[in-house]
Design a protein around this nucleic acid. Structure first.
Lengths: 247, 247
DNA sequence: TAGATTGTTAATCGATTAACAATC
DNA sequence: TAGATTGTTAATCGATTAACAATC
């Protein structure tokens, strides 16, 4: 029996659909396997980048991509891509590659972007305001519920419809709403005492921009963004580069 | 011959002084060795953190520290600290440990913090303004020379005495002053075209905050801070943590 | 000197890359 | 079916940790 071209494509699509549907159903046990730890920090660190590239491909209307093509765009090895993804399950199909939209969605689920997380920002300076204005966070499920500061001049100012509140309202606020994440955008002198308040009131994770490490109970997740560390790495590379060219 | 306690300490101090002086003189060939590459990314990534801890110790008046004590504060192994530092030379002394002030200075030199780097910020939104206001960068030798934006309403606004200029002045500005570093704090749609302008006008390094990777000639250093990548890692860890506790 | 602690080599561990059989 | 490309095992490479002799 022969099928015309459109018929073949239809079968192919159907096959893919069915396979992906089945894979989708796997999530139960797969996530339990994932939960049983063992995914390295390095792999997790790369997932957001895959997610970003798949988003761009998707916007560009690309339907499928092989690990090889993706590896060239991202300047990594195809082997690494396949190895990374297979930590979480088989998202691809031999002879076909990966379905861009599907793979993106799955990585999104792994990263928890399909769920919503309530967030507050502590410190309404430039950096706090910058974060508050990133509309794209909301798109990924991070919902800004409150902004706090000590400066009375900022009281009542709103950023994307969220009013700045004073710090003395923080504890009650955290208790009344289910806030999971706090972004700390304040000087290091305040960061440590504030982080204690946050932990006492059930915050699950802190996105730390203060110029210090936070030593908190190990069930509190801390993700730090140390801008000056980043700038120093850049500076080191400038040095190294100058030497390399005999200056 | 016996020495009293203060005499012994004097000799010890003298010995240390002499040793450190000699080590200091080594820098010529050491940096050439370092220049001959081979320092891994991972090691470089840890240097700013050592620098930060040594700064805190120094402020707290601590004069010397052993790799063991430092390892406990930083939650790393003493072995790693010694191994890391010995990539750049022997900064310590057997039986004594490391001189805090000296080691900090040396790491600062490795990172290029003893030199000054002219910098511009492209994009005077909240994030650009936040960076401009970080006085501590200036302390480490990063000198803000200019801030640029397309928004005419920002024209003439000054941040820490640096006026916001319009983008059409950028090329001339780069040519007239020796600008090494550009911080890109603008939307990804603009980031790529602006980075081309920067490269054409001799920028050595880009501190990239845009939500995209920049594919530039390999002699241009790019250090990216992808905030959403960071938030996604945090989100992943929240997920994993929930699973671990059977939710 | 004895004790402490480094610098450095060797052992282990983990992550990346290569290779290829499975399979769409 | 033949060709393409994955999933996965094995080989390599690199980074971390352990151990200890050198030495202050």
């Amino acid at each position: 029996m022969k099928l015309g071209n459109s018929g073949k494509n239809f079968v192919k699509s159907l096959t893919l659909f069915v396979q992906f549907y089945i894979i989708g159903k796997d999530n139960g046990w797969r996530s339990r396997i994932v939960g049983s730890r063992g995914i390295s920090r390095a792999v997790i660190g790369r997932l957001p980048r895959y997610y970003r590239y798949l988003g761009e491909l998707n916007e560009a209307g690309v339907e499928r991509i092989s690990s090889n093509d993706l590896s060239k765009r991202m300047h990594v090895t195809a082997s690494q891509i396949r190895q990374d993804l297979n930590n979480f399950g088989g998202f691809g199909q031999q002879g076909y590659g990966y379905n861009v939209k599907y793979l993106r969605t799955e990585i999104g689920k792994i990263l928890g972007l399909d769920q919503s997380h309530n967030m507050v920002i502590i410190g309404a300076g430039n950096l706090g305001q910058a974060l508050a204005n990133y509309a794209s966070f909301e798109k990924n499920g991070f919902i800004l519920q409150g902004i706090f500061d000590v400066n009375p001049q900022l009281r009542g100012k709103t950023i994307r419809d969220v009013p700045v509140r004073m710090m003395d309202e923080l504890e009650l606020f955290l208790q009344e709403r289910e806030i999971e994440i706090a972004a700390l955008t304040l000087p290091k002198s305040k960061a440590i005492e504030v982080s204690d308040i946050l932990v006492r009131n059930g915050i699950k994770a802190i996105w730390n921009f203060a110029h210090t490490d936070l030593n908190l109970p190990k069930d509190v997740i801390v993700e730090s963004v140390h801008l000056s560390d980043s700038l120093m790495k850049l500076s080191y590379n400038i040095m190294r580069h100058k030497e390399g060219h005999g200056e």
